[in-house]
Design a protein around this nucleic acid. Structure first.
Length: 517
RNA sequence: GGUCCGUUCGUCUAGGGGUUAGGACACCAGAUUUUCAUUCUGGUAACACGGGUUCGAUUCCCGUACGGACUACCA
């Protein structure tokens, strides 16, 4: 019962759609929904369609559509048909398909499955006040102002003089079945359903009408969308039936939600802000408030890592494999293995994926990241030296920008010394060695890591001091602190001159300890 | 409130009538390392609860609890 077979779906012409609303930036959960659609399309040789559901003019946000397109492109989710590439079912923007919905809505009225309603907002409010939990349905519709309750002549008159909506006439007493690919059999009694508005008074359709009409006309085979649509899915099933399209109704798959990392509930921008991680794929500036939200891309997340992470948030391959290229995902993905429960968004796991993917990149690409940062910061660096720095830093980074964050020590001497480290490690023995070492290193501008090591050992041996006791002090004088890449490697990259210079500075600035010998 | 959906380590999850309940992230410890990081090894840690069904339930059924979604002329 939990594995609902796709049946002939694999053989049929798979056409899936991602249908966002341009009301703002694309939420990361939307990216996952798009991804699952895309994976199924690619796996079956089907078609991935992008449709823009912009039927609410009040919520339209300029730039949102372009943002969605760019986000999907960044994520590597290619659109085969729809807004962007175009296609045989154009237009793919619902605001441009008004007439189509009008026609279908009227058809439903003629069939007796929908009706005109003239209730004002106040009328609706009054109805809700009258009875608790009241909804516009078979028990209340006759008390309202609509073409079912009013005389014909009056309806005709109102139709020309008053604003009106078209509502779906829900049958009063029947069980509606829905076979969800993820949830299995879902049953809802029609008495629980309300007479949803199909056409708004501004002449635009609601989601319910538009999405059913378009999915039919665009020959969508699978509707893969968020769980928040499950409660209205029975309405959609009814619409397919009333239009006479039941035999070509798409298969439904309602995806579990992405939850906030702590507590419960849908992952929101607020949660992300509060916990300090992005929620949008790309940086987004809200045109109304002017508020800017940093995207995953700008925060240093690689699209391949995000995709891998997102794919595993709700889906699993049934094996222990964790790292998946896009092609591997396309191979392995299946709706059967999508879980039912919501998944908490674990940014730490995303970071781990990013680290894995970052390390797997070629030295050339990695050094490119460093070079880019250096350019911005106004530092010059040869490609060769960048390569060396990147090699020294490779196992220490999570994001591309870490190469600069951690590599800046190669370009700027420390401006302060970690006082607790100094207190513990800045010994008079170390200072003695450092004086000698500085002299020696100064005359060897191009020394190798190995040379640097030999020189140090030589001095230490001559003075009868263990090198281990000096290394920390040496590190402090070069980097200001106690952590960093391999010390000798650091010296090699810094060069003898710079190394000597930094030791001199440290020797000058840090008091020679008298107490600890 | 009503309807619908859900519930295995802290997190993502595998599993499934009899298992030492497996993996990954995170965390902790040890080893390696001149530091930190990496790497390696090991460890802590889970079947929400109550009834059935059954020789046996974490697994099947029913309840309860908890959580979530929906409940607009928004999508």
């Amino acid at each position: 019962m939990k594995f609902v077979p796709l049946g002939s779906a694999l053989c049929m012409n798979v056409r899936v759609r991602f249908a966002p609303s341009p009301t703002g930036a694309l939420h990361i959960g939307g990216v996952r929904t798009a991804l699952y659609n895309f994976l199924l399309a690619r796996q079956t040789g089907g078609t991935m369609i992008l449709r823009i559901e912009d039927t609410d003019q009040n919520r339209y946000v300029p730039g949102a559509e372009e943002y969605i397109l760019q986000s999907l492109a960044w994520a590597g989710i290619k659109i085969d048909e729809g807004v962007g590439p175009g296609g045989p079912h154009a237009p793919y923007r619902q605001s441009e398909r008004k007439a189509i919905y009008q026609k279908h809505a009227r058809e439903l009225v003629d069939l007796g499955h929908a009706y005109y309603a003239f209730d004002t907002e106040a009328d609706l409010e009054a109805m809700r006040q009258r009875t608790p939990n009241a909804q516009y349905d078979s028990t209340t519709r006759l008390q309202m102002k609509n073409s079912l309750s009013l005389p014909k002549e009056e309806v005709q008159k109102l139709l020309t003089s008053e604003p009106y909506v078209i509502r779906l006439k829900i049958p009063s007493n029947e069980e509606i079945h829905l076979n969800d690919l993820i949830r299995g059999e879902v049953k809802v009694h029609s008495s629980q359903l309300d007479d949803k508005v199909l056409m708004k008074s501004d002449g635009m359709p609601t989601y319910h009408l538009a999405n059913v009409v378009d999915d039919f006309l665009m020959q969508i085979s699978h509707v893969i969308r968020g769980e928040e649509w499950l409660p209205s899915a029975p309405h959609h099933v009814l619409l397919y039936r009333f239009f006479g399209w039941s035999n070509v109704m798409p298969r439904f798959a309602h995806l579990p939600l992405l939850l906030k990392p702590d507590g419960n509930g849908k992952l929101s921008k607020r949660d992300a802000d509060r916990m300090g991680f992005p929620i949008f794929p790309l940086t987004w500036t809200d045109p109304r408030t002017g508020e800017t939200s940093k995207g995953f891309r700008e925060s240093g997340y690689l699209p391949e890592a995000m995709i891998n992470f997102l794919a595993l948030l709700g889906w699993n391959p049934g094996t222990t494999q964790e790292i998946f290229s896009l092609n591997e995902l396309i191979q392995s993905f299946s709706l059967e293995r999508v879980g039912k429960a919501g998944a908490k968004f674990d940014i730490q796991k995303a970071q781990w994926f990013n680290q894995q993917y970052l390390r797997a990149l070629s030295p050339e690409i990695l050094s490119g990241y460093l070079l880019d940062s250096l350019k911005k910061e106004g530092f010059a660096c040869t490609p060769d030296r960048a390569l060396k720095i990147v090699a020294a830093l490779k196992d220490r980074v999570t994001y591309p920008q870490d190469f600069w964050e951690q590599g800046r020590l190669f370009f700027a001497a420390p401006d302060a010394f970690d006082s607790s480290a100094v207190g513990k490690k800045w010994t008079s023995d170390a200072v003695k060695v450092l004086h000698e070492y500085e002299q020696k290193v100064k005359s060897a501008p191009a020394l190798s890591a190995n040379d640097a090591k030999l020189m140090l050992e030589e001095i230490c041996a001559a003075m009868g001091i263990k090198p281990g006791q000096v290394l920390a002090a040496l590190r402090i004088s070069l980097t200001g602190g106690m952590s960093g890449p391999d010390l000798m490697q650091t010296i090699e990259i810094l060069g003898g001159m710079e190394t000597a210079l930094r030791i001199q500075t440290a020797l000058k600035q840090l008091a020679v300890p008298t107490s600890n010998v």
